[in-house]
Design a protein around this nucleic acid. Structure first.
Length: 427
DNA sequence: TCTGGGGTCCTTTTGCCC
DNA sequence: TCTGGGGCAAAAGGACCC
């Protein structure tokens, strides 16, 4: 995509937008995973390419604009994407590579201001209030970021510049790919009101349907609807929130470090599973993974929850709060299994299981009291030793016996049972 | 069309205590 | 002893985001 293409200078055809007071930047990488993959495969440039799971149950994580031209978009089931664009090259995701590219990009942002709030690997808000004297106007800072990221990382991004986070985000979406858009304070309402309701943050499929039934199609329609009506239809928080956003009011500020509220892991089986032994083994794997991440980040959590998705996609969760916060995989696992067994599922067919730990706090500040007569279990110490070994010899060097087959290899990934007659596997 | 994996936030329900 | 209700925390579900 060439740089000169699509470079709006403002939401209207008038003179370039006045960026006075537009201190919030939203930077969004263009087709991030796909762009990163292209760096290692320049021969695919200009061709449709999709990053996504190669199995028969995956979804599209990212697609080049050439693939998007066929109607492919992220979160679309891979089956459907392949059908829409059979000539697309499909690449399995390599998360570590994206994390590294992301860290590099975030470094560029932090060279502008310490007030960087990452939203995900590929986007962030920046508060550039303090950078003006050193680097120029918000628009100039945005242009500098775009040029620097492209020079240093070889990938393009789009930048929205506005007075609030939410308008900055809409602006970056509006000028994609490889663009920059300033929405001046006095043009916010004119910019917002023609947009479809789905453009608002927090309006997904369900909410859109509710709004449609009320006859509300654009942001302007929402703005001109009494808050009481919105609250009745959508609940009090969502109703008030949408009404404020529709007028461009958004009090949220850029916050550099939000602590984690929960940490978890989940996995969809390649084929539905009805064997409690397989489910239990998967709970062990997920519990260990979750606890290892807690320990690596120096945190503990008090509530363990499991998630079960049945073959028909209905999903339930069950949780239990422990007397004391933990980062011990064994404790997480025992709680998870107790929750699972209490369901009495017999041989229900499951599509996914997940384990999550909530109520997160710093391990350093978390109280631990040995109860009278309690013996230190030794699990914590054992797992810390495993962490150490993993750092030295690689993840999986040491693992619970239940996750090791008699031959010494790990058992096949979650229930890779012989494909049933129904299961069509693609390759 | 057939739906990943990581999360957050909100609402409703439930159980407990007073 | 029974009932009601306020306040609270935990549990559960669901919508949403990237």
């Amino acid at each position: 995509m060439s740089r000169s293409q699509l470079r709006p200078v403002g939401p209207s055809a008038g003179p370039p937008g006045d960026d006075t007071g537009c201190t919030v930047l939203h930077v969004d990488m263009d087709a991030f995973y796909a762009s990163v993959e292209l760096l290692a495969r320049p021969e695919l440039r200009g061709k449709p390419m999709i990053v996504g799971g190669s199995g028969n149950r995956g979804v599209v994580l990212s697609a080049t604009y050439e693939a998007r031209a066929y109607g492919v978009h992220s979160a679309m089931p891979m089956m459907r994407a392949r059908r829409l664009c059979p000539e697309a090259v499909v690449i399995s995701p390599t998360p570590g590579v994206y994390a590294e590219a992301s860290a590099n990009v975030m470094e560029v942002f932090r060279s502008v201001t310490p007030l960087v709030e990452p939203i995900s690997l590929d986007e962030a808000f920046l508060d550039v209030r303090g950078a003006a004297r050193r680097l120029g106007s918000p628009r100039q800072i945005g242009e500098w970021i775009r040029a620097t990221v492209e020079d240093e990382q070889g990938i393009t991004c789009s930048v929205g510049v506005a007075t609030t986070k939410f308008v900055a985000k809409l602006a970056s979406a509006r000028c994609k790919p490889d663009g920059l858009l300033v929405v001046p304070a006095e043009q916010v309402v004119a910019f917002l009101h023609p947009l479809p309701v789905g453009a608002l943050w927090g309006v997904g499929e369900k909410t859109e349907e509710v709004l449609r039934r009320l006859g509300l199609h654009t942001v302007g329609d929402i703005a001109n609807t009494p808050v009481s009506t919105l609250r009745r239809a959508l609940g009090s928080a969502a109703g008030s929130h949408l009404s404020a956003l529709a007028w461009g009011r958004d009090e949220r500020v850029v916050v550099p470090h939000e602590p984690d509220k929960s940490i978890g892991a989940e996995e969809t089986f390649p084929v539905d599973v009805d064997d409690p032994v397989v489910v239990t083994r998967e709970l062990l794997r997920l519990s260990e993974r979750t606890a290892a991440r807690l320990r690596a980040s120096g945190q503990v959590g008090r509530t363990v929850s499991i998630k079960i998705r049945f073959a028909d996609f209905t999903t339930i969760t069950r949780s239990r709060t422990l007397p004391e916060a933990t980062d011990v995989g064994r404790t997480v696992y025992e709680t998870a299994v107790a929750l699972y067994e209490a369901l009495g599922l017999e041989r229900a067919r499951l599509r996914l299981v997940g384990v999550r730990v909530e109520g997160i706090a710093d391990a350093a500040g978390a109280p631990h009291q040995l109860q009278l007569g309690e013996k230190a279990s030794g699990w914590r110490e054992a797992e810390q030793a495993v962490d150490k070994a993993s750092r030295r010899f690689g993840t999986g060097a040491v693992r619970p016996a239940a996750l090791v087959e008699p031959g010494g290899e790990a058992p096949p990934a979650p229930s890779a049972r012989p494909p049933s007659s129904r299961g069509k596997r693609d390759r």
